[in-house]
């Protein structure tokens, strides 16, 4: 009995009143140091390195050559076009709905060859890449809408994604840039 009363008397509690202050301090520290930057960008898969670049043997009707020169001008299949027209041109080339003889035989055969100058601005390069990717994204979207009744997205089932991407594979080959001739 006596023991218990002694313990009761000795019961010492830590004053928790300053807990909030400590937590506040830590909170402010993390608030200041935190950077909620989400990194977004164009996902690209580079081709594996080979010492001498193999020249792909594809007939010219299936190749969509895009050249970007040092002045950020576009030359697509031999003609100069503005960047705003690139997406629709690429889409028509890949899908070839009217079965034109000069466009890709099948979407699976289509190859996009992108070549730039060493003096091309990075901004232009990204813009061109973006347009080409947009063309593919729109084609995938159309196909997904047709097949599954919903738009193509990154988080759709893997099998569906694979099916769509095997039907219209994204092939963008990047040749080494040409030097500005001067």
């Amino acid at each position: 009995m006596a023991k218990q009363t002694a313990r009761q008397r000795l019961r010492n509690e830590i004053n928790a009143g300053s807990m909030a202050d400590i937590a506040f301090l830590l909170l402010i520290f993390f608030l200041v140091t935190t950077t909620i930057v989400e990194d977004k960008g164009l996902k690209v898969r580079l081709p594996p390195w080979t010492p001498d670049a193999p020249i792909a043997d594809v007939s010219s009707r299936n190749v969509f050559t895009v050249l970007v020169n040092a002045d950020d001008e576009l030359l697509v299949r031999g003609e100069q076009i503005p960047i705003t027209a690139l997406k629709d041109y690429a889409k028509e080339f890949i899908a070839n709905p009217k079965r034109k003889a000069e466009f890709a035989k099948k979407p699976t055969k289509a190859v996009i060859s992108l070549q730039n100058d060493r003096s091309t601005s990075y901004e232009m390069y990204v813009a061109v890449y973006n347009e080409l990717k947009a063309a593919y994204n729109e084609l995938w979207n159309d196909l997904a809408q047709l097949r599954y009744g919903k738009p193509y997205s990154e988080d759709m089932p893997l099998a569906m994604k694979k099916a769509i991407r095997s039907e219209i594979p994204l092939v963008i080959s990047e040749a080494d840039p040409f030097q500005a001739e001067n």
Partner: peptide, 12 residues
Amino acid sequence: RKSNQLKVNYSA
């Protein structure tokens, strides 16, 4: 490419 780091993201 030489270092076999092929997954690349162009931040934008």
